[in-house]
Design a binder for these strands. Structure first.
Lengths: 117, 117
DNA sequence: ACGCTACTTAGACAGTCATCTAAACAGGAG
DNA sequence: CTCCTGTTTAGATGACTGTCTAAGTAGCGT
């Protein structure tokens, strides 16, 4: 068995995550570790203008508005999205930096060593 | 959905995730949404030869062996790692395809969201 | 066969989470 | 001001999760 196969797609390489890094990163993945939040994120990202209001999002699910609001709050507290109230509606948009960091961690090895900032 | 297809790149943008896709993808992120499992994954990926035995992993944590075994089982059931017993020890290694797909899902999304204007 | 080490399974317990209903808060319209 | 719509907060509940101890399985050495 070729044990050096890591060179092809090598994820999470370079250096093992220490406890502090793992503790900081895990909540980011936990935030998207839910079908509803994954779809919310994608709905926001795909929405024209890069932002969507809660009313756009709520209709896409068979869930009550408070439940959607809860999931949006989780995503926001994780730093994955941000929001602003403009008149009647509240708009949400994606924070691309955080998503990029998570992607980099899993894919092209680089984010492991010293990305805490 | 072929979870091992790294280049099929279904980013968060382009088109919103439907319910079925989200339901299938969320458990992958849930599997790494834990500091211990994140470190386990990274320890395995970084270990020489690309594989590590449970004994190597257990000593890195202040947790009992059954707990580590449980986390490894979660990672394995999610398809992120695989294992084989060779004599006394059981070795674990990473399934790079699944990780690459997760990375692709997050990466292009953030890039596009950041440049969408 | 016996015991020793490596690892997993089973069961229990505490803490967290997703969801709901009810109620509060914010803003626009009459 | 008062009502109506949009959104969030509060509290409750059932389900899931991380961890442990105790016990089971698997292979090696004597």
């Amino acid at each position: 068995m070729d044990v050096t196969a890591a060179e092809c797609c090598a994820p999470l390489v370079c250096e093992p995550l220490n406890e502090a890094e793992a503790t900081e990163l895990a909540p980011l993945f936990k935030a998207i570790a839910d079908p509803v939040r994954l779809r919310l994120l994608s709905l926001i990202a795909c929405h024209e203008g890069g932002e969507a209001c809660v009313c756009d999002l709520t209709v896409a699910f068979d869930l009550t508005a408070p439940t959607i609001s809860h999931h949006l709050k989780v995503l926001k507290q994780a730093g994955l999205i941000d929001s602003e109230r403009r008149g009647t509606w509240v708009y949400y948009w994606i924070n691309p930096g955080v998503l990029a960091r998570m992607s980099a961690l899993l894919g092209p090895a680089s984010a492991l060593a010293g990305t805490s900032a």
